[in-house]
Lab assay of single mutants.
Amino acid sequence: DLSALRVEEVQNVINAMQKILECPICLELIKEPVSTKCDHIFCKFCMLKLLNQKKGPSQCPLCKNDITKRSLQESTRFSQLVEELLKIICAFQLDTGLEYANSYNFAKKENNSPEHLKDEVSIIQSMGYRNRAKRLLQSEPENPSLQETSLSVQLSNLGTVRTLRTKQRIQPQRTSVYIELGSDSSEDTVNKATYCSVGDQELLQITPQGTRDEISLDSAKKAACEFSETDVTNTEHHQPSNNDLNTTEKRAAERHPEKYQGSSVSNLHVEPCGTNTHASSLQHENSSLLLTKDRMNVEKAEF
């Protein structure tokens, strides 16, 4: 173990290094160091905050020279020094078990990766560091076993998940096959086929009936047209017969005018059967003409 005197000496050296690497504005270890034209180094955030307070150039807090945003430059070497100082402080805390008085939040800088452990060898070769390295080497064999167990647990979990997924996939297939086998029997399929065939026959029977009705309507229309044509021909046949009657009536009127007047009046009210309204109107006109002729003949006879 380190003596108290040596611990104090190391602590004083760390404090001196820390004062050199402090920012003059925030009085902390410089984060993202930036250098000016006057070779003074500050935190990048502190300098941008200072420049944004005034429009135009501002003055350096140490030498009062003008500073602009374009004049600022990043210093990589200074950032490396800060990183190495942080590593020294971490090693000091691990070796002594004491917390550094002016320690900052170094938890963000710590890294437990194997590459980081290899890099620590180049920091300080001390008894405390050696003991700590031995402890780490002793704890390393235990870690692979834990990793193997965790991997086995994960693989077993994956296997159970896969088996569950396969079961879920197989179950719908089985149910679907069961439904297909038990849903419709052979008799049901035959009945469905016969039902479809009967429906098709009914459709075939319905369509000819409609065509037959249309044919019957067409035949009825044709018969009505033929009947009207026969009526017209009958009226045409009746007209010459009426003319013959008129000639006979004229002759009778010349011989017996008194008797014919009474008979002509009675004939006005008689309509021949089986004739249309057109034929009756023609008869009325003929009878009126005959009456006028008879009157003329009677007057001539009187004179």
Rank of each mutant, 00 (worst) to 15 (best):
K49R: 06
N65Y: 04
V7I: 10
L282F: 15
Y129F: 05
F106V: 03
P24H: 00
D200V: 07
I89M: 11
V121I: 12
N157Y: 02
H238N: 13
S176Y: 00
R169Q: 11
P57H: 06
Q147L: 08
V153F: 09
L86M: 04
V34D: 00
L291F: 10
L164P: 03
E236K: 13
I123N: 13
Q138P: 04
S35A: 06
S288R: 11
D200Y: 06
T292I: 14
S186Y: 03
L51F: 05
S35Y: 12
N131K: 09
K31T: 12
T275A: 12
R77G: 15
K250N: 09
E83D: 07
F303S: 14
R6C: 01
Q11H: 13
E8Q: 14
N65T: 11
E148A: 02
N157S: 10
Q138H: 10
R255K: 12
S103I: 01
C90F: 12
I89N: 11
D66N: 13
V190F: 05
I20T: 11
Q80E: 12
E285K: 12
Q171P: 09
L217M: 14
T149S: 10
K108I: 11
K300E: 10
V298I: 14
E271G: 02
E226V: 13
K49T: 12
I124T: 08
S228P: 12
G199R: 06
P144S: 12
L146M: 10
C26F: 00
Q125E: 05
T68N: 15
E140D: 07
Q261E: 02
Q283K: 04
R132L: 04
T248S: 13
K55I: 07
S263I: 07
G262S: 14
V177I: 04
S152C: 08
S287C: 06
Q93E: 13
N234H: 03
K108Q: 02
S264Y: 12
V298L: 08
E229D: 06
S183Y: 01
V82L: 01
L94V: 07
G182E: 02
D184N: 07
K19E: 02
S152G: 13
K54N: 07
E142A: 06
V34F: 00
K44T: 01
S75I: 15
P61H: 00
L136V: 13
T230M: 13
V177F: 02
C23F: 00
N65I: 05
T166A: 10
H278D: 15
H256N: 09
Q80K: 09
T247I: 11
S71G: 05
R130K: 11
K55E: 06
V153G: 08
F92I: 04
E254G: 02
D39E: 02
R212K: 07
I123F: 15
N143K: 14
A301P: 08
S219T: 15
Q201K: 09
R70S: 15
Q154E: 03
I30T: 09
K37R: 08
C43W: 00
I88F: 11
M127V: 07
S186P: 14
A301T: 15
L137P: 03
E32D: 08
S122Y: 08
K54R: 09
D200E: 02
Y129C: 03
A133V: 05
K31Q: 02
E28G: 01
S263C: 10
F45Y: 10
I123T: 10
P272L: 14
A252E: 04
P141S: 06
A279S: 12
N12T: 03
V161G: 10
A224D: 11
K293T: 14
P33S: 06
S280G: 13
K64N: 03
E271D: 03
Q201E: 05
E84G: 14
P272T: 15
G56E: 10
K44R: 06
P24S: 01
M127I: 10
G97D: 04
L164R: 10
C196Y: 02
Y260N: 01
L137Q: 14
P33A: 02
Q93H: 08
E110K: 06
P144L: 11
G210R: 03
L204S: 14
L50P: 01
S3F: 11
P240S: 04
F42V: 01
Q125K: 13
S281L: 01
F227V: 15
P208L: 00
C60F: 01
E299D: 09
M17K: 00
S263R: 06
A101T: 10
N131D: 13
